[in-house]
Design a protein around this nucleic acid. Structure first.
Lengths: 217, 217
DNA sequence: TTATTACTCAGTATAAATACTTATAAAGTC
DNA sequence: GACTTTATAAGTATTTATACTGAGTAATAA
């Protein structure tokens, strides 16, 4: 009997998937969790063979919970289960070292097949996910070419701090007070920023920073 | 027998909900759709009594599909089914005139109860949704008070022209050239704008204009 | 070790923006 | 006709911002 822990914050979804899993005779859902923390706790307690983890959950999401679950003594297999075919999510999951990623657009067979594959020690990514991975690969090649053509602008930590304050409408003097430095230093930073971004005044600076998304946020 | 059309782009989710619905003897899922357009077509063909519509779908989302489905000759009841408890989504649904809104965090009983209620002609919103609606109501009251306290600001055509150029990073001289007026006139407009919007410099001016959405665009 | 980068500060000069005031003509409102 | 708003313009003074130059220190990369 294969013991499964199922984590998803939406009751309807969780229960539906449970029914699918248990339609397979050798599968048994031994526990459910509705957030990441609960999943971590139950993974330790119940020692499941496989943990199915939804990504978007309150408290602690699937991506955050995955590493801890992977490190529990019973070392369960972890399969992410997600609404999204987002490149970043998929990448993050691969970095976290999970054993599979199944899109909720997959069908019952893919779900069950995925769990079985993972138990055999084979990584499993549902078809939709594989498509994204292929597209990713292609677009990443294109991006590399573009990056060679247009090297991206790097602002230093201090410059980012200053830009943020400029964007709030602070004057150089106010920024100087805020950061405990000379207003002349602030002016120097302004000048460096404007030179780096090839603009002539603070408003153009702000526009450029916004367009180029130089603030992470 | 109650005929149900179920639209959701995620196969696993759709099938799970189908099982729940059909656990009720008088319910029958007579069709499924994986996007908005398909839902519209099948609503016309199959003449269901109730359409369960997921909001986020490709091609045409649930919000877009809802009005068309409501207008089909057989006039089916429409219940939105959503991952999100987003205020805007809920508002949009109410404006569209759908008969219910069930959050996917609801449980099986709420789902079935909701469908029954709607068939009785009673609008149904799952508990989570009602909570959001109550919060909405409270915050909207607060907003109204604020709006009464702060009458909205009207900028003249000329002032709008000037603001747009300021936002492009033009100096007063450049604006003067562009509009064939004196730079002193531009300064006067700047001063008037800053007074009207109660700010101390151009950057704050831009921020305010953006926040208050004083440009139609 | 040397070279580079990031951060700091300053002098000098000019350009631009802001504060405060006054004023006139045109257009529309009551 | 009296009144208000809008758009125009300007005087005077002060504050900020920008341009250009130079330079010291600390951390880090080559």
């Amino acid at each position: 009997m294969l013991k499964i822990l199922l984590a998803d914050d939406h009751h309807l979804v969780r229960s539906g998937i449970k029914i699918f899993l248990e339609s397979e005779e050798e599968f048994e859902v031994i526990g459910e969790a509705k957030n990441g923390n609960e999943a971590i706790t139950k993974a330790k307690e119940l020692k499941p063979d496989v943990v199915l983890l939804d990504i978007s959950m309150p408290d602690k999401n699937g991506l955050e919970a995955a590493p801890e679950i992977l490190n529990t003594p019973s070392s369960p297999k972890v399969i992410m289960l997600s609404m999204y075919l987002d490149e970043q999510y998929i990448n993050s999951c691969m970095e976290a070292g999970v054993h599979g990623y199944i899109h909720k657009g997959a069908d019952k067979d893919e779900l069950i097949n995925g769990v079985k594959k993972v138990m055999e020690g084979i990584s499993f990514y549902s078809k939709d996910v594989r498509d994204v991975m292929v597209n990713n690969y292609i677009t990443s090649l294109k991006k590399k070419k573009q990056q060679l053509a247009q090297p991206k602008i790097n602002l230093t930590k201090r410059e980012l701090e200053i830009v943020k304050l400029i964007m709030k409408g602070y004057t150089s003097n106010q920024i100087a007070e805020e950061l405990f430095i000379s207003n002349r230093t602030v002016d120097t930073h302004r000048a460096n920023l404007m030179q780096k971004l090839d603009v002539k005044n603070s408003i153009e600076l702000i526009n450029k920073v916004t367009e180029e998304r130089l603030l992470q946020e």
